[in-house]
């Protein structure tokens, strides 16, 4: 695979090449996804330097353990962002950042609310994602925002919103499912599994 081929390779093919220690394949994966990884981490941490560390870590992890990505289980973008979110939340919840977190919480609750719409900048899907978000009830939307972009557990979200924990837990799941259905209708996501 030469460089031009890499540019056109699927994400799954890139990961195979990464498994063969092809650094230029990692560079291409980085070119495609590092911006989103960085943006998500910085969004949660509100700290560009820490977010850069997360970016390094996520791609280093991909370099050393590409087999952890299973193309059968979603896109590389979604895998990397899930890794990013998990690592970022670990940092947020670590002892050292507790104080900043408390300050951040105070700010978060004082703000009128996160605006999911401003997070979606990829224009090809932005409109559809915006539409899917609009299908959520305001309670669902708030719960998902605080959990995902606030880095809060659903229990913390329940406390912040003064709502029962079980209700918040259900709303997060129901909201994600509804967005999935909406996005599947326009072909952006596959159809969700039926509820059993």
């Amino acid at each position: 695979m030469d460089l031009r081929d890499l540019r056109e390779a699927s994400d799954a093919a890139l990961v195979v090449a990464i498994g063969r220690w092809r650094q230029e394949a990692l560079a291409e994966a980085y070119r495609r996804h590092a911006g989103a990884v960085f943006a998500l981490s910085r969004r949660l941490l509100r700290d560009a330097a820490l977010a850069e560390e997360v970016v390094q870590e996520v791609f280093l992890r991909l370099w050393h353990a590409p087999d952890r990505f299973d193309p059968e289980r979603g896109s590389l973008r979604s895998y990397l962002l899930a890794q990013t979110h998990g690592r970022t939340v670990d940092l947020l919840r670590s002892e050292t950042s507790r104080r900043q977190r408390e300050e951040r919480d105070a700010r978060a609750t004082a703000e009128a609310g996160y605006d999911l719409e401003h997070e979606v900048l990829d224009l090809s899907v932005a409109e559809h994602v915006r539409h899917a978000v609009a299908q959520l009830t305001s309670d669902e939307r708030r719960a998902i925002e605080l959990a995902y972009f606030g880095g809060h557990t659903y229990r913390e979200v329940a406390a912040l919103l003064d709502q029962p924990e079980g209700t918040v837990k259900s709303r997060i799941r129901a909201g994600l499912r509804r967005m999935r259905t909406t996005l599947a209708d326009v072909g952006i996501a596959g159809a969700p599994w039926p509820l059993r």
Partner: peptide, 16 residues
Amino acid sequence: EHREVAALLANAGLPA
């Protein structure tokens, strides 16, 4: 599936 949806929410196309 949930993570795919979340990834779409996070889909901010800023350069690294």
